[in-house]
Amino acid sequence: MNGALVTLRKELLSYCTSPVSWIIGVVFYLWRGYEMSLVAEQFAYFRGDQDLFPPSTYGLGSTFLMVMLVPGILTMRCFAEERRTGSIETLMTAPVRDGEIVFGKWAAAAAFFALLWLPSVLVLQLLELPPFLDADLAFGPVFAAYLGMFLLSGMLLAFGCFASSLTDNVLLAAVLAMLFNFALMRLPQQLAAQLGPDASYYARELLDKLDVMRNFTEWFARGLVDTSQIAFYVGGVLFFLFLTTVSLASRRVA
């Protein structure tokens, strides 16, 4: 795993020094901060409903930005940029397994994504203090929702890596990843609605697992963490990382 760790460290450094990462961070925090102030005002005005607070903290436009748009932007350079500049040649002729490189790049993107969210957890903690809401908020569901979001984002980042391995155009890689993210959030619901009463059990189950929006509202946001959901997202990560490795290997053959 030496190659994966080395790649992780180098990529994380690149994220921290990239202007794109800082722009994402600034836009996210400004937007998030503004939305959180609105949520807090409402919470204070209605004398706080503990059940509604957790869903309202992540069901915001900034969350939508982070989950749908950001994974594609973070991962767009992973392999597309290496291909564009030719550094893929030195990378792939180094004595490291393709899988280690892929895992290292994904892990760096996931770690940076988690870093982007960290301050927003602190904001929630701040809201509990007397100068703000002075309320004892239910953090269990909030943390469960964060866990669910990280699992989903991990899968989307893995798809982003895969999209980036398919092209040497970073913009195309980002758009491809965003389209996938959008489809994953919308399509399962739409398809499930189209299913007739005689549809197979497996089709329903599959669409149910793929319906990431419902997974949030009905499971993670209510503080329910189901191992099958975790297995689904971890499986998704591994699946897309595997596809990325195969894509790299096939490009080596080309």
């Binding site: 030496n2 190659g3 080395v6 180098k10 690149s14 020094t17 030719g86 040649e89 030195t90």
Partner: peptide
């Protein structure tokens, strides 16, 4: 390689340390 591709955002010494680590 013929056209040396190096990461423009790393310092030369950082790049070489990264490559040394990658090569074990």
């Amino acid at each position: 390689p013929e056209n040396v591709p190096i990461y423009p955002d790393l310092r030369v010494v950082e790049y070489l340390r990264y490559r040394a680590a990658l090569k074990g």
